[in-house]
Design a binder for these strands. Sequence first.
DNA 1: GGTATATGTGACCAACTGGTTATTTGTCAA
DNA 2: TTGACAAATAACCAGTTGGTCACATATACC
Lengths: 227, 227
Amino acid sequence: MKNGSDTSDTPEKAKSPAPRHPRRPDRSRSRILEAAVLEFSEKGFSGGRVDDIAERAEIGKRMLYHYFGNKEKLFLAVIEKAYLDLWEAEAALQLDLLPPREALAELVTFVWRYYLDHPEFITLLNEENLLKAQNFRHSKILREGAARSQDLVKEVLARGVAEGVFRSGIDPVQLSLTITSVCYYYLTNQATSSIVYGRRLMTRKAQAERLAFNIESILTIVQAAPL
Amino acid sequence: MKNGSDTSDTPEKAKSPAPRHPRRPDRSRSRILEAAVLEFSEKGFSGGRVDDIAERAEIGKRMLYHYFGNKEKLFLAVIEKAYLDLWEAEAALQLDLLPPREALAELVTFVWRYYLDHPEFITLLNEENLLKAQNFRHSKILREGAARSQDLVKEVLARGVAEGVFRSGIDPVQLSLTITSVCYYYLTNQATSSIVYGRRLMTRKAQAERLAFNIESILTIVQAAPL
DNA sequence: GGTATATGTGACCAACTGGTTATTTGTCAA
DNA sequence: TTGACAAATAACCAGTTGGTCACATATACC
């Protein structure tokens, strides 16, 4: 095959198609990232199409590769952004201003609201786990952030125990996992769950009921005397 | 290109490569299904490759299409099998032989063990939810099974209330979702969670601790006096 | 034994997909 | 002004992928 232009001068080769857009490097980069978040969270990593991301971002595919290298690195950037956003929001919480029980309720509410407001986070996290946390594992930025992020529950729990309103002996990791679980599962698996239980799960009312149930559950677990 | 055989008689056309295998229709079908369960649960729907499934099943791709039609229908068959297996195992439980608290603990243990023993179930369910439960929704077999499946918790809960060992007013759907959540999340998201918490989560000891924590949590939620 | 049909195979294809190339044009420093 | 580099584009490429075809053979039924 070599080159199509045999001997002919390829008459109206007209390589004219020229960039018309103004220059906006940062904007391009963030547009790509946003588009990628949407695409990957909707269709997963394998299902997400680089071409579609470029189209969503209204940008040439070339720029995508210019800024991010390849599909995997783009996905890594997406995961990093998703987590950094979460941790940023988490950091804005000031649980130490509240008494322990209210602080814990506030934390559950925060987790719930955050997942509700950022459905893409859940899907991306699922995808990253399907990939055995490959990206997470190899991203310094994520590993470091993770280390800092797990203290919220521990502190509230310790404070509650000190003040005598929580029972002692609860593993903060277990509790933290449970808080996340009861919010997360409801939202990731709403599609199948709503069929299994024959009930709409995402109405305002249903959402409020779930949050209330979760808060009550967590507070009960934490306050009750051991069995 | 049309057809390679221009005028030549395609000398050693040698279409000889002939089927040597014996006939084993059922076996072929189930082999394909097993291979598909593996493939899809490892790589998701988009990531799963039809060719790889055929290879895993040690069968021609043609037969796969012969038995299942196309990739989507094969995935549907996989999902159906996964759920039918779960429900079959569930049906073998005889919770009514146990007093309410033990029955509930047994149920939590069952859910936990089932997910542990069938990691593919979790991944497939994730994938199906990414697909907005399209398959689930359109499968009569699944919709009907789902309707029957949700009664376990309701019955145990009702019995416990009747005997005065559980508090009343608990929504069985919420409780059921919570039971599933605290088992499910731990296992799906072990890859990222183990990094976030800097702790190995799948050692025998860690598994036992999680199960114990979950049982205790659920029993506490159910028995405690309302706040 | 004969034959219709279900079971099976390798080769093939068109569309897709991640990634690259040749080329053009804004932008900024000197 | 100029010229070097960053930013942008369309066309292109090679490997992959879901799906099909022509053809071969084991089996059930008569």
